[in-house]
Design a protein around this nucleic acid. Sequence first.
DNA 1: TTGACAAACGGAGACATCTCCATTTAATAT
DNA 2: ATATTAAATGGAGATGTCTCCGTTTGTCAA
Lengths: 198, 198
Amino acid sequence: MEDGKLTYMRTERRDAAKNRQRILDTALMLFEQHGVEQVSMNQIAIEAGIGPGTLYRRYRNKGELCLDLIKDNVVLLFEDIDMYFEQNQSEPPSLRLKGILSLFIRFRENKAQLLKGVEDSEVTNRKKSRSPLYDELNQIIVNLFNEINAEKESQKNSVFQADMLLTVLKSDSYLFQREIRGYTPEEILEQICEIFIS
Amino acid sequence: MEDGKLTYMRTERRDAAKNRQRILDTALMLFEQHGVEQVSMNQIAIEAGIGPGTLYRRYRNKGELCLDLIKDNVVLLFEDIDMYFEQNQSEPPSLRLKGILSLFIRFRENKAQLLKGVEDSEVTNRKKSRSPLYDELNQIIVNLFNEINAEKESQKNSVFQADMLLTVLKSDSYLFQREIRGYTPEEILEQICEIFIS
DNA sequence: TTGACAAACGGAGACATCTCCATTTAATAT
DNA sequence: ATATTAAATGGAGATGTCTCCGTTTGTCAA
């Protein structure tokens, strides 16, 4: 039957589900123990007692694995953002932008290593499009810039501004400011706002 | 003798010099033929008729090799910048900043692939400090921002602003705008100036 | 049950980066 | 010339990513 077939296609095989969980648990453990960067896909496969092929069948690279590990937090982030918007509808767009940047920075601080894992493998694997996380954030920021720029004639810049803002918030840049320049998250937020919200 | 010893230490052995040139020639040829990304260090070593160890002895990674291949152009870039400054001393700093950004973008367009090669391996190899190229550029830009911010009380932001400006001009960001968003170099320059010179 | 089938598996192996170190070799001093 | 010596060499191999494909194994229908 159509139904049966569809259901079959959709449901995860029991052994697969077991392995999925095993991978997730193992990765989380190894990441916590040695740090995300130090742990190889091989190590995870071996420790999880599966073949490398099995691991790569599910996650095309370490980044996807990292992303799966923070998926819940990503959902929470966007819920927070939605909530923030609901509670601050009447605020000016520049302030709302700062608000959601603050939320994002908090998220980034919480999941620094895993987020870096995600982004690192995105650049390694030459993805043309950003991850869904960044696409969705980008959309939100573009909308806010559109509001901000509504006064001026130049609507077209919003996309560019949003791209630049997200570029500057990527791991490489953010962690450089954090670790080498020694700025606090709050200072970074302030400085970025000064540049991008003028 | 001291002199002899010093000279000995300094001069490159003839076979080494020969290999160096052989590597450079081979790399340039392979890069032009297949594109920088597609060519591995192994390939270069084999094609140059040397062992991988020899290649890595001279260049710790592909990025250093790429950097060596554009070294002359980097020198030219900074000469251009110096010349520009001499001829535009009396212009306002914001305009001078735009001028040197324009020079840098031209350089980046000329040596896009190799510059990408340099930057890619910098992120891969977790360098804490930027390459000398970026350090020097950074210094120049900081100085310009200091002039620009001289009017305002906030001198301290110049370092941050310069960092962000260079972040946004890195290969990943720049090529994304260039190839995916479809902006021209001139458009990118204009947009960046709008954001950073306000 | 059982048969069929697609999904899941696992490990060999292709390639890449990079290190280590026994051996070679060019430049200098004698 | 020859000995000395430190730089240079090269290739084996450690480690990592990722693919390919023959084999196994759940799942569903009959």
